[in-house]
Simulated scan of single mutants.
Amino acid sequence: MTTTTDIQPGDLADERVIRLLEDHLTDMFATSPAESVHALDVSGLTVPEVTFWTIADGDVILGCVALKEIDPTHGELKSMRTDAAARGRGLGARLLEHVLAEAARRGYRRLSLETGSQDFFRPARTLYAKYGFRECGPFADYGLDPNSVFMTLELESSPHGAGSAL
């Protein structure tokens, strides 16, 4: 059976989106110490420097992702989540490709992210590495944290970087 999934600006007042974000935060707090959880809640996603999208199949919200502008040349991947029931369908890659295309469109030279160091986050780290992200030190306002892995991608040199059609 073929399904169509669309990535659209996310509605942070939508109960389905709120549930997805609550599930995300629940997993983050269950996996990492509270001081090491950097996931954004709904209020953190509503600030002007953050753009938020969802991926849906019809009326079913399957995942979300956000892009935070650190400065005019540097963006941060935030709040990437695929609903547990929809994992293994390549939706994470679709969301990541969407953000990479948007970062290139905005003229960012670098895209960075913070994720957990625990095994729970291994699939995410593997996906990011597949797209050319490499481990780096803390960026923006982050500090060293044994529960965090920081990764970055120079967009000009990435296989999916600026100028590529994803």
Rank of each mutant, 00 (worst) to 15 (best):
Q118V: 08
R89W: 03
P123L: 14
L96A: 01
A162N: 14
T54M: 06
R87G: 11
G132C: 06
T51R: 15
E97I: 08
E135S: 11
E156Y: 13
G90E: 15
D27E: 12
F29T: 11
G75C: 09
E156V: 14
E49N: 11
L96W: 00
A13I: 02
L77R: 12
M151E: 14
R81A: 14
L144I: 10
D14R: 02
P138C: 07
D59I: 05
V65C: 06
V37F: 03
T5C: 03
H98L: 01
Y108P: 06
M28Q: 07
A66V: 02
P159R: 12
A56R: 11
V17L: 02
T31C: 02
M28L: 09
G88T: 09
L144P: 14
L77Q: 10
E135T: 09
A66L: 05
T3L: 02
K78L: 10
P33C: 07
Y128E: 05
A104Y: 07
P48T: 04
T73Q: 15
V17Q: 04
R106N: 10
E102V: 09
T115K: 09
P72I: 05
R16V: 01
L40H: 07
V60E: 01
A140S: 12
P33T: 08
E114V: 11
G58K: 07
F120S: 08
F121T: 03
G143I: 12
G63W: 00
A93G: 14
D27N: 10
F52N: 03
S157Q: 13
M80V: 15
A86N: 08
T46K: 15
P48D: 13
S43R: 12
L155W: 11
A103R: 05
G88W: 15
M1I: 04
V17N: 04
V65M: 01
F133T: 00
D59V: 06
R81Q: 13
L111H: 04
L21K: 01
S32Q: 07
W53H: 05
T5P: 00
T51V: 09
Y108F: 15
L127H: 05
Y128A: 09
P159C: 13
F150L: 09
H160F: 15
R19H: 08
G90I: 12
A85V: 14
T26C: 07
R19D: 06
A34D: 11
S148T: 13
A93F: 09
L12S: 04
M1E: 05
T4E: 01
P138N: 12
S157N: 14
L77G: 08
P146V: 15
L20R: 04
T26R: 14
D57P: 02
L96G: 00
G75N: 06
T54C: 02
V50W: 01
F29A: 03
F139G: 03
T126F: 07
S112L: 06
F52P: 00
E15C: 03
Q118F: 08
S158K: 15
D83R: 15
T31R: 05
R19K: 06
S36M: 04
L155C: 14
V42Y: 03
R109G: 12
F29M: 04
C64N: 01
H98S: 08
S164Q: 13
G143D: 08
A93D: 15
E69I: 11
I7A: 00
P48Y: 01
L62M: 10
T4V: 02
A104T: 10
